[in-house]
Amino acid sequence: MEKLSFEISKEVKFRGISIVSVVVLVIIWAIVTHFEWVDPYFIPKPLEVWSSFVVLLSEGYKGASLFTHIANSMYRLFTALFLAFITAVPLGLLCGYSKYIRAIFDPIIEFYRPLPPLAYYALLVLWLGIENESKIALLFLSGFAPLFIATAAAVEKLPADRMNASLSLGATKRQLFQYIILPSCYPDILTGLRTSIGVTYATLVAAEMVAATNGIGWMVLDASRYLRSDIVFVGIILMGIIAIGLDSLLRFYQARRFSWVGK
């Protein structure tokens, strides 16, 4: 009981430090903009950003509500992440288990993985059109590689004795994957998913650059063309808060479900 209360007090302490750091950053931002040490076109005042946020909530942006922009971006993001998860995890498990299968797919994934998303986005638009399909495909490709690599690496680091013992006790290959490999790889798969979300989220603006008329990334890009830095700040802050929320949910689940990891 004492240990639990000590851990809770430490967590509260760390949370407090995080809150203070954010408050200090906002204060510095307010001071810099108040004395106009930086041109207001580049860094608007916090109150101006808040006012723009209130206006966006009530009036929307370019004919669509703020919620619609966020919902469209999240639809593209989660569709791509779902497709990446159901393909990268099984393929990563197979490639981590079999070097022959990995030899087939590894060159392809390693070839496109370091490429900037915009380098092949033109091809995706040419093949899939300018609607959501090309945008989802771009997000899918950006999120697939980190999740695949994390899954394959998780399988490769499993102790061979654990798998050999299961096979010697009569386990089939299906049972080996279902009861030994997959459960052992869960923590690393979740870590790979967190990385995948970060990479995919960073590609969101690029995905909404071509022929989009909605989305939080498009809103930021469109506002920047008219030097509306207040709206740009609103979009960036919203994207950051949403990303922190998604990652916090995964971290919370990871801490509760796999509390034994690293101990």
Rank of each mutant, 00 (worst) to 15 (best):
N164A: 15
R174E: 10
A202Q: 08
G192L: 00
I181D: 04
A211C: 09
E208W: 00
S52C: 05
Q175F: 04
T203Q: 12
I28A: 10
G92L: 00
A211G: 04
M74W: 01
A223I: 10
A122V: 14
R194D: 05
V23D: 01
G60M: 07
K3W: 10
P116T: 12
H69G: 02
I109H: 14
V38G: 09
I180D: 07
F42M: 07
Y121F: 10
I244G: 04
L182W: 00
I70S: 06
I180H: 08
P107H: 12
I237R: 07
I236N: 02
Y100F: 13
Q175K: 12
V261C: 04
G16P: 02
I86V: 15
V89R: 00
L141N: 06
G143I: 06
V12I: 15
L4C: 10
A30S: 14
I241T: 06
I237N: 06
V89T: 06
A122Y: 12
S196D: 02
M239I: 15
F78E: 12
E133P: 03
R15E: 15
L190T: 05
I244N: 07
K99G: 14
I180C: 02
I236F: 09
V205W: 00
V234Y: 08
E131F: 03
W260L: 10
A255M: 13
F78H: 01
W218L: 05
C185I: 05
V232Y: 05
A103D: 14
D39P: 06
F177N: 04
V32P: 10
K3E: 11
W37V: 07
S52D: 15
E110L: 03
Y121P: 02
F105C: 03
L47W: 09
A243V: 03
L128S: 03
I181W: 02
F105D: 07
K45L: 04
E48W: 12
I181T: 04
K62S: 08
L123T: 12
Q175G: 06
T200I: 09
L56V: 09
W50A: 13
L83W: 06
L182G: 05
S184Y: 06
E2P: 11
K263N: 05
P183W: 01
V220S: 14
L221H: 08
F144D: 10
T172A: 01
A160E: 11
V12R: 15
L47T: 13
I43L: 11
D247G: 04
I27Y: 02
G170M: 11
G16I: 07
